[in-house]
């Protein structure tokens, strides 16, 4: 099935060929999970800070659930903060 993947800020560099601006249509398996899409596109898990499924925040413990459906939009933002001291 086809879904739209949007990668924001520096994650945009990880978008595959065929992307327009920060979005790309990708093919994923039926019943795919957000984490499978994240791994498939080599987004480091610690950089997938905010995951939005059709605009709704997906908490880390929900990212292994097979919630993605045909035509959905998965958007990912990196963390924004400075160093740990």
């Amino acid at each position: 099935m086809k879904i739209t993947l949007k990668l924001y800020a520096t994650l945009g560099d990880l978008l595959p060929a065929g992307a327009f601006e920060n979005a790309v249509q990708i093919e994923v398996a039926d019943g795919a999970t957000p984490n499978e899409v994240i791994d498939q596109h080599r987004v480091p898990r610690e950089m997938a800070h905010l995951v939005l499924h059709n605009g709704i925040y997906v908490a880390p413990e929900q990212r292994d659930l097979p919630t993605i459906k045909e035509g959905d939009v998965l958007a990912i933002w990196p963390p924004v903060a400075w160093r740990l001291t």
Binding site: H49, P60, P78, P79, A81, W82, R83, L84
Partner: peptide, 12 residues
């Protein structure tokens, strides 16, 4: 919001 921070995501 930042519950799983275990390593620095980057410094200024």
């Amino acid at each position: 919001l930042y519950r799983d921070v275990t390593e620095p995501p980057g410094s200024c």
